[in-house]
């Protein structure tokens, strides 16, 4: 079994009486791990904990061997991680280069020559070499996300935390961004939070499904899809007993749940498995 690069045990964090993250245990290895879940599932809170932006109430974790529960451990962990938050935020007057250069200063690259070379390297890596000198406010949404990704890549971190990086991007931009994430995942541990099952299907060797602060599934995308084997069927009318059902473009209904006798079963998708994993007890595939 591949040695985990990020290990977390029993992470718990509550806000105003609500358990945003509830006894989360997971082990990440090299490659891209997808974190799927609905709004309010606790994904962003979990990512903020692992990125050392907030402290859990209970539990512990290590990042590439560093323990962030101590001051020096936290600084060491931050030296090996890159974080792309849900809302990166930019100073409106910064150019792409100036922003990445500023982040490089925060990442302790004090030598100007080295720092500028690093800023150029990461901007080239995300395909923004031609717009380095352009003010961020004049860049498209997709380009802004790439600037934020470039900033996260400064210092060549071993652990990348990406919080819904493809939100708001059009299909072409999303495709390009996926390519960048796939490249970033080579030789690196990437934890990617997303609403899009397509992101997981195309990028991730592993997927974790969260709901109401708890891990509902932890396994491969194929295992998550297999959760829905024999539990997806089509019908002419809405099925009240289905866990989820929706009208398709052909006028038929696609249903997920426990099919009735004689139901017309269809091949499940990753999304079907995800829908079954939400709510209730953890489904088969959760690591012990």
């Amino acid at each position: 079994m591949t040695r985990p690069t990020v290990s977390a045990a029993g992470l718990t964090l509550s806000y105003r009486g609500t358990r945003a993250v509830d006894e989360v245990t997971l082990r990440l290895t090299e490659g891209v791990t997808g974190l799927l879940g609905p709004n309010g599932a606790g994904k962003t809170t979990l990512l903020r904990i692992l990125a050392t932006a907030t402290v859990p109430d209970n539990g512990a974790f290590t990042v590439l061997g560093h323990d962030p529960s101590t001051v020096t451990g936290r600084q060491d962990a931050r030296r090996v991680l890159g974080y792309l938050p849900q809302n990166p935020g930019f100073h409106p007057d910064f150019t792409a280069f100036e922003f990445v250069d500023y982040v490089a200063v925060l990442k302790e690259l004090t030598d100007r020559r080295t720092r500028h070379a690093e800023a150029r390297r990461v901007l080239d890596a995300v395909g923004l070499a031609d717009v380095r000198g352009k003010r961020i406010r004049k860049l498209s949404g997709g380009m802004k996300q790439r600037v934020a990704l470039a900033a996260a890549l400064v210092g060549d971190p071993g652990f990348l935390v990406l919080d819904e990086p493809t939100v708001g991007l059009d299909p072409e931009q999303r495709m390009r961004f996926r390519e960048l994430i796939a490249e970033a995942g080579e030789g690196r541990t990437v934890l990617l939070s997303t609403h899009q099952t397509e992101d997981v299907a195309m990028l991730c060797h592993r997927v974790v499904v969260m709901d109401q602060g708890r891990v509902r599934f932890d396994g491969t995308p194929a295992e998550l899809t297999a959760v829905a084997d024999g539990r997806v069927w089509r019908s002419a009318e809405r099925q009240p007993g289905a866990r989820a059902g929706w009208r398709t473009g052909t006028g038929e209904f696609r249903n997920v749940g426990d099919p009735p006798e004689g139901a017309r079963l269809v091949e499940p998708t990753l999304e079907d498995g995800y829908l079954l994993a939400l709510g209730g007890d953890p489904v088969a595939g959760v690591a012990a």
């Binding site: 903020r48 600084q75 030296r79 974080y83 809302n87 935020g89 930019f90 982040v103 925060l106």
Partner: peptide, 16 residues
């Protein structure tokens, strides 16, 4: 930019 600065290795006190 707040969260970017928060998780940077430069000690927050030094930045302040």
């Amino acid at each position: 930019m707040y969260e970017t600065a928060v998780v940077a290795p430069m000690h927050t006190f030094r930045l302040l």
